[in-house]
Design a protein around this nucleic acid. Structure first.
Length: 181
DNA sequence: GGGCCCGCAGGG
DNA sequence: CCCTGCGGGCCC
């Protein structure tokens, strides 16, 4: 199976981050709850560099950060998030377009998160406006470090196509998410 | 180093 | 609804 092969490839040469560390994706001086007006500002301040994409990272390093928008079938329970992968869509300008084929772990950005699930390196999580009841009503908010604890495929009930899912668990010992509901 | 393709924006 | 923009990773 393709996924097992990828896991085998990616698990070579991986670093492991002990449970008690925040890892090297944490930015000194970036406080939980820090607000940003736009994706542009997130990019300029290097909290999440891509101005459009939801997943930031590299194939060898893994992911660095993700942004939740609420426009996908993510599940957000605050300390636990199930983030949907990228790809398999048409007409991207519709943000997002309809799912027209299966998502794949071969997709570079999905590989970043798959890699992170193996090297246990915590990633930064940013919530966009109204992306869930844990999200700010406006602007983007840095909500701390999360670990990717699972990567699997699931059937998207809307389209019937398979999508990649990533379970994110918030690293303990951080200030709570500043929920405002 | 350059070109290419892409994406959980943002706005017209 | 439709288009432009922008930064990035990646593979020549």
């Amino acid at each position: 199976m393709a996924l097992e092969r990828l896991r085998a490839q990616l698990s070579m040469n991986t670093d492991f981050f002990p449970q008690h560390t925040m890892g090297d994706n944490m930015i000194e001086g970036l406080a939980v709850g820090a607000m940003f007006e736009s994706r542009r500002e997130l990019s300029e301040k290097q909290v999440h560099r891509p101005t459009h994409a939801g997943i930031s990272g590299t194939k060898s390093f893994g992911a660095q950060s993700v942004v939740l928008s609420g426009k996908y079938s993510d599940e957000d329970e605050g300390n636990i998030v199930v983030y949907t992968g990228t790809g398999g869509q048409k007409d991207v300008y519709r943000n997002p377009g309809p799912q027209v084929e299966d998502q794949s772990f071969d997709h570079p950005m999905n590989q970043y998160l798959l890699k992170s699930s193996l090297n246990k390196r915590p990633i930064r999580v940013i919530r966009g406006p109204s992306s869930s009841r844990y999200a700010p009503s406006q602007g983007y908010r840095y909500d701390g470090m999360y670990k990717v604890t699972a990567a699997y495929q699931d059937k998207d009930p809307e389209s019937g196509y398979n999508v990649c899912k990533f379970r994110l668990e918030r690293v303990p010992g951080q200030p709570p998410i500043p929920v405002s509901y």
